[in-house]
């Protein structure tokens, strides 16, 4: 008995040591490109290139300054781009949560004609990479109707280019999000709906007051997973937004690739646009990691 528990303790400790070693080694691999990015953002271009093959690339040594950051603010209207990205991301995620969760609710808990057809359509659209439809999309959104204010009058016009909504609306409905909500909602007992129906609640009320409050983890997961692509939008705004005042942060990257790339400023800029996500993620990571776990994302 004592020897048994002794060997068990030895085994456990050995496994612990092994786990920590493995995780630490992996942690280095997962972190070092980002350390390189932040450290390089503090160095002048010539030193970045000179340090590139040595351990110094990871160390803030030599000619360290914030010059690259000042250079970024000189070259790019950073505040404006940041505001645009925050606005676009918040609206895309916010509307997306409502629209996709409603769809997931109807697909998982209600019976109506065409339900399985819509579900197959949603799953089929999962496989379409955006790049392959980008060109027809530009043409298509340029023909969509829009409202304009002209001299105090609201008028119709055509063309969605050059606006915030062209960067938001096409990305609200998200097949992946609908799919996750459908999965999660179907794990909540249907007897709750039935009880509510007997009490005279309509379907929207059931969604709003009963099912949605029980689905916190699913909402959190979808929020983070739709936040990332919205923040990282790149190809699409390049194609459809011409006014500088409407551009998001990722497009700003292009400002540094002149005839000679200003690498230090690229590193400073990428640090600046990566940091907000990291902060958001780090502050919500506990909720997020546990919510993904709790949402039981699976097929």
């Amino acid at each position: 008995m004592t020897t048994d528990s002794l060997t068990e303790r030895v085994v456990l400790r050995r496994r612990k040591v092994w786990s920590y070693t493995a995780m630490s080694a992996l942690a280095v691999i997962f972190l070092f490109p980002l350390v390189f990015m932040v450290v390089s953002s503090l160095k002048p271009d010539s030193q970045i290139l000179a340090d590139i093959g040595s351990p110094q690339a990871f160390l803030p040594v030599g000619d360290i300054s914030l010059d690259n950051y000042f250079g970024v603010f000189d070259r790019v209207p950073f505040g404006r781009f940041l505001f645009n990205s925050v606005l676009i991301t918040v609206l895309t995620v916010g509307f997306g949560l409502i629209v996709n969760s409603m769809a997931g609710f109807a697909l998982s808990r209600m019976r109506w004609r065409g339900r399985s057809l819509v579900l197959s359509l949603v799953i089929a659209t999962l496989i379409v990479p955006f790049e392959t439809v980008a060109v027809p999309m530009v043409y298509w959104v340029s023909k969509l109707p829009t409202l304009v204010m002209e001299g105090g009058m609201v008028k119709y016009d055509f063309g969605w280019l050059n606006s915030y909504h062209v960067q938001i609306v096409p990305f609200i409905a998200n097949a992946f999000a609908i799919f996750l909500f459908t999965q999660y909602f179907s794990t909540i007992p249907k007897s709750l709906d039935e009880a509510a129906r007997i009490d005279g609640a309509n379907w929207f009320t059931i969604y709003r007051r009963i099912v949605a409050p029980l689905a916190g983890p699913a909402f959190a997961t979808v929020a983070i997973l739709t936040f990332l692509p919205a923040w990282n939008q790149y190809l699409w705004p390049l194609m459809v937004v011409q006014q500088e005042s409407l551009r998001p942060v990722m497009v700003g990257m292009q400002y540094f690739f002149q005839l000679n790339t200003a690498w230090g400023e690229v590193m400073a800029y990428t640090s600046l646009i990566t940091l907000p996500i990291l902060i958001v993620f780090l502050s919500f990571q506990r909720a997020f990691v546990s919510s993904v776990a709790a949402s039981g994302v699976k097929g």
Binding site: V99, N100, A103, F105, R113, T125, A175
Partner: peptide
């Protein structure tokens, strides 16, 4: 019938957006 209508109208916003911004461009392609 009510359930059918409610179900369809709850899925409609997502469905319309998917049709407008995914299905139609794919068909155009």
């Amino acid at each position: 019938r009510r359930e059918g209508r409610a179900g369809f109208s709850m899925v409609a916003p997502a469905l319309i957006l998917l049709l407008l911004f995914l299905v139609i461009p794919v068909l155009l392609a």
